[in-house]
Design a protein around this nucleic acid. Structure first.
Lengths: 126, 126
DNA sequence: CCAATATATTACCGTCTAGTAATACGTTAC
DNA sequence: GTAACGTATTACTAGACGGTAATATATTGG
């Protein structure tokens, strides 16, 4: 059972509490442990602290002391940099999905002739 | 400890064997359990079978019998569809990463005047 | 200094998980 | 039919994980 970097990244993300912490930091900027813990009434503060340690270990957040508070912030660069190599392997599927989205948008907004039959050719419209 | 859909997705992806299976199916198309198992000399065939059940449970692969062989194939649509909502939350960071990539490309290829004020911000040059 | 606050660490628990071996099941070959 | 094959399932084990409570460490206020 090798523990690759990607393993650790996905395992870190495979917990809704940790993902919510990332979401909160992304939405509201830097937050202290207490502020974060206040968002999880069902969890004890030390539990949040442990999750933050896990996120720090993965490099997804970083912390700096301010007085007796520890202020955490999202390390979005790490998130992107660590996830990109794996996502890139499925590049063509993402392109395909984007094209389908575009086709759907064209269809609904009518930027393309709505009378045309559905999507005979999905990979290029004129 | 809620077990959301996203939880299950990330947990399924948080195993290098399962990710390798997905990679193999993406590269080489449809494969039988035996063909897949042959790629993992350190694992027993039934272990691969169990991983495939997990992947099926997540909808990331599907199977069809051909004689006594079970042929598995990648369900890339599910992968993209299930991962997109979460990725979309960090949309702006992906854009930022793409821009940095573009800036880097411009800089190295010189498609833009290196002296231009294009990238006054964001990239500290020397 | 002392008390209160804010966070981290430790010990412990129940649960989940990846792995194996053994077994069962369905299919083809003889 | 029977044996061999391909895959799935079960039972089991060791280790990891999420959670709590209790304790420890550091910092501020009085």
């Amino acid at each position: 059972m090798r523990a690759s970097n990607t393993d650790a990244l996905f395992r870190t993300l495979a917990d809704s509490t940790r993902r919510q912490i990332l979401d909160l930091l992304a939405e509201r900027g830097c937050l202290s442990v207490g502020q974060l813990a206040a968002e999880f009434p069902d969890l004890v503060a030390s539990g949040i602290s442990k999750h933050l340690m896990g996120l720090r270990g993965a490099g997804l957040v970083s912390a700096s002391r301010h007085g007796r508070k520890q202020i955490y912030r999202l390390e979005a660069d790490t998130l992107v940099a660590d996830l990109t190599p794996w996502l890139a392997k499925y590049e063509r599927y993402w392109f395909a999905a984007l094209e389908r989205l575009r086709d759907l948008a064209e269809e609904s907004t009518g930027t393309d002739r709505p009378t045309s039959r559905k999507n005979v050719r999905r990979t290029r419209s004129r």
